[in-house]
Nucleic acid binder design. Sequence first.
RNA 1: GCGCCAGUGGCGGAAUGGUAGACGCGCUGGUCUUAGGAACCAGUGGGCAACCGUGGGGGUUCGAGUCCCUCCUGGCGCACCA
Length: 779
Amino acid sequence: MFPYPSGNIHMGHVRNYVIGDICARYHKLKGDEVIHPMGWDAFGLPAENAAIQFKTHPQDWTYQNIQNMKEQLKKLDLDIDWNREIATCSKDYYVHQQELFIELYNAGLAYKKDALVNWDPVDQTVLANEQVIDGKGWRTGAEVEKKKLSQWFFKITNYAEELLNGLDDLDLWPEKVKTMQKNWIGKSIGAEIKFEICENGNFLNIYTTRPDTIYGATFIAVSINHKIVSDNLDKDVIEDIKRNFASVNEAKEKLGVKLDIHCKHPILDKKIPVYIANFVLDTYGEGAIFGCPAHDERDFEFANKYSLPIIKVIECDDDELPYTGEGKVINSPLLNGLDKKDAIERVIKHFKKEGIGDKKVNYKLRDWGVSRQRYWGCPIPVIYYEDGSHRVLDKEELPVLLPYDVNLEGKGNALLKKEDWRKIICPKTKKVAFRETDTLDTFVDSSWYYMRFLNNKLGKPFDARQINELLPVDKYIGGIEHAILHLLYSRFFMKALRDIYGFKIDEPFKQLFTQGMITHKTYRTSDNQWVMPSEVVSKDGTLISVKTKEKIEEGPCEKMSKSKKNVIEPDEILSSYGIDATRIFMISDSPPDRELEWTDEGIQSSKNLIHRLERYFLRKKNIVDNNVNKNVEKFVFNIEKNILSFSLNKCVADIYTLFNYLEKTKTYLHNSDLSKKILTCIFPILPKLALSINKSLFDSNEFKHWPNVNANLLLEDKITLPIQIHGKLITTIDTKKGYSEEEIMESICKLDRVKNKIIDKKITKVINVQDKIINIITN
RNA sequence: GCGCCAGUGGCGGAAUGGUAGACGCGCUGGUCUUAGGAACCAGUGGGCAACCGUGGGGGUUCGAGUCCCUCCUGGCGCACCA
């Protein structure tokens, strides 16, 4: 995943890109065609905020950061093809994105509608859901308001079913990510039922997954934002109710307001009251439910509070109420005696016959709101006429360039104030028109960048032939924090563009690897001020601050973060430990998908290993051990296996194992062919070290091919066979593969440890797993 | 509350149902020295031993860290989703 150019690379980037680099270098040695690109997710709020804070321009700030971070990345010896570099804020990128927007619009996948959005009253902008934390703006801390605004949406819901089903085929994705996406899409199967409103004969739609409990329905509850509310109550009254609801949001206490209307029960001849309830979501289903207090916890709580009847319709004890489990239906003439599944089927059939309901599949997933009231983003290619109508531009009218010269002072979107940019004469109608001032969510930028990498200089977004040939991305590496947003949006884009451009590709990323975070101990003073690790020293067993000599408390290991000051700067590490030690430490202590704890001992021992390897190859050639070929062969085999399975921590163990063996047996390979093999295998992990040794031993500047593994050499002839009695290990015996059971049992029975165990016992059974283990069973 | 993942030495972690603890860190003892952010050698799950040991309890199996059931603990995600 490409980085956001925030200023400096951090250790998380280092780990991410080192893991990817090892894979890329390995596959190149295997002769595979490898595209290993890098780019910048360069639009977004932080640039604008920084620009205001430091009195610079978002573009200047961003490009300066890109330049800086590119230099830092280059120090990591990454085998990146910089010719493919893209920055999403460059017009060479976002202009093509405007074309995609037009295509999506023409395909009916982009549309405009009024919607309730998160509005930050301080920053005067809409915030994405993920930028709202506990109901407050992430940057301002201000209470976020719900505001109705006209917004652009992408119709991701059209693909809900396919996005869900497609997960089953992503067998190289972590289960966790797939589960998260599944939950986010949130498919449920239920029924939609029309309730007739007694007072006016209109209908109210509700969605339920439990139509089998319909006989237990004693009230209807709707969301405060439901249309029926504004039809029946004055604005001020609604505002009052909203305020009242907001006051108990945290406590989740059930609140309701009774409306002056009733619904007819769809089967029974009775009227049931309609409430506005604070626990009914306007964003799920129809924003309206029927309440069945006997078999739903929320309805039960609500019914008790407002003294509504509770009618039991699923068999259970009274003290079990609300009972939400399975059981036989009771008190329901049409459904009595049926189990849940049959009752649901039966009642839906009835509703269908009566024309008041049907089976309904519902998704939690909502359409993707892509409008942002911000300057630093991709302009949406739309214009508005003075009569309020709008027109999406034609491709020929592109590009809509983001103006550089804007006034970022003050609040709100700078584009709104940029009158000479906003106001145009529409070339088609010759009428006065105004450009759309909202820009696209940055997640749009990152939804298709992997396609642009295939040819970043093309005069159109991408070449369909190339997409078909090269996508999906074979290995995609990044943090799990993108599990839903970026990875779901990208999957949607792949499918939508497939349908528009006729690609044969359904999924953008074949294998997803989510690397773990890097953690570090935290330090704080007695008055709870965070302290940088580099400012802490140990003196006489206690930690003190270098600067103030204050006593320092050591806290738990946590994700590196600037706020807790427990960060290690890659630049400092690279200059004191070097690139090779830094790279190998990134994969040493933990499997790459788990947390890695940064420790001084860890990085130091990585550095020691690098020195050890350097020293080893300087030694005079001395090949004495006749197992050396076999051990090198095993090494090649294991490294390859472990790179392919992302078990990179085991690659490090493989290196130690090999060199422990070589040094133990005093086998020095110097410039032998075996050295070349070994160096080729460590090259993907430690390119600088491998190249420098390669230069001095072989006067060569490259590694050409990954060594072929000679499977015959891997076969062990001699084995140490474990001997068990009743499944417990007793001893081992050295033998050769292919021993005969009869002969070996004879020797085994002579072994003291075995003899003592089976003395005055009879062997009733011998389980011989040939060449693996022998288990002796006695009476 | 729902879902997912994970519990193995002092620590990070290895183990296609077949010798638990590879490899590293740390620690102990020793060697060497142009005193280093070294290097080298030996040792390092517990127990004097028989033996005991992979969160607890059951089960399947000749054999379980691994499979099944159940409980406990921790982490992550979602969360009034009807």
